[in-house]
Amino acid sequence: MSRGRLFGFLALTLLLGALALWGSTRLTWASTEVAVTGHGTTGTVPIDADGAQLAPGLIGIAVLAVAAVAAAIAVSGIARRVLGVIVVLAGAAGVYLALAGWLSPPTAAEIPRLTGTAAAGAAPIPGATVATTAAPLLGVLGGLLVLGGGVLLLLADKRLPRMGARYEAPGTGRPVDAERSAWEELDAGVDPTTEGTYAGAERDERGPGGSPRTGAD
């Protein structure tokens, strides 16, 4: 796989992971019913808790994954490997948060507080049940994709392109410095600004086969 395709695969993995994490936070994770009192009457209303309310950390991990795409091409070497470790840890944290929200959903008494409806006078109903959805699994998928992108950063560091690589001369590991090359030529006794002129004049002074021209020529 070429460097460009490898980086494209890495970017796609991280961006899809970020999209899955963000999308999970927009969906309902748990719902229940609460009692609302007003004007001397009491009634029940359903309330929903989404991923942003139950696992707000997923949003930050999604942002980090998007930023890692730009950072991955801007840095190289040790910095890129450190970035890979950070992305791996962030992906693992995303998997943990999403799994925790799915396996340990909030209780009916906790949902009003988490959603902010408790301040509006909503109160939990004794014995109310909590209905959960599979939306956290989308967050698990997003976390795994981000984690996979971090592993790819660690394993394929030397095969990934980096910013400024196009300015390097073929077969060398560092950029060509025209100014430095000119100084090196001067140190060697060669004037780079007149070398071509002297070479052309020398050719004119010599005849065919490299022999000096005579006055008869």
Rank of each mutant, 00 (worst) to 15 (best):
L114I: 06
R80Q: 09
L27M: 14
V36S: 10
T32K: 13
G200M: 12
Y198Q: 06
A122F: 15
G171V: 05
A30N: 09
T117W: 13
S24T: 10
A199T: 08
R26A: 08
R26E: 01
R80M: 04
R174Y: 07
V176P: 06
E185L: 13
A109F: 00
L103F: 14
V36D: 05
T172I: 04
A90K: 02
V66P: 03
D217T: 07
P175M: 04
W183F: 05
I125E: 09
A165Y: 00
L54H: 07
G189F: 15
L54T: 11
L12P: 03
L64E: 05
V146G: 10
I61T: 15
V82K: 14
P192L: 10
Y198T: 00
L138F: 12
P105D: 05
A70V: 10
D157M: 09
G196R: 15
R159L: 10
L147R: 02
A74K: 12
T117Q: 08
G139N: 11
L15G: 02
A92M: 08
G17R: 11
V95G: 10
A108C: 09
V85T: 01
D48P: 01
A18T: 02
I111C: 04
G127A: 12
T117M: 09
A74F: 04
A128W: 12
G196Q: 15
L97M: 13
G173T: 14
E185Y: 05
V63L: 15
A108G: 09
G4Q: 09
I47S: 04
A216V: 00
V95T: 07
W29V: 13
G91L: 10
R81N: 08
T115K: 00
R5K: 13
P170S: 12
D177K: 05
G139V: 14
L144Q: 02
A79W: 08
G207P: 07
P46C: 11
V95C: 08
P124S: 10
A109L: 00
L186F: 14
D204T: 06
Y96C: 06
W29L: 10
L141I: 08
G148R: 01
G164E: 12
L19Q: 06
V75L: 03
G215C: 00
A216I: 04
R159T: 06
H39I: 00
V45Y: 07
A68T: 01
L89C: 06
A30L: 10
L154E: 06
A100Q: 09
R26Q: 11
A123L: 15
F9C: 09
D187A: 03
I73E: 08
R159G: 03
W102P: 08
R174I: 00
T129E: 09
E33V: 11
A123N: 12
V95K: 01
G91S: 12
A67I: 04
P126Q: 04
T129V: 06
W29Q: 10
T193V: 02
G139W: 07
S104D: 13
P161D: 07
L114N: 12
G196K: 15
A71C: 01
L21D: 05
G210M: 13
P161R: 11
T115G: 02
L99G: 13
V95H: 06
L138K: 14
G40H: 05
A123G: 09
G40F: 05
D48T: 11
L153Q: 04
T172Q: 08
T115A: 07
T193I: 04
L54R: 14
A178V: 13
E184N: 09
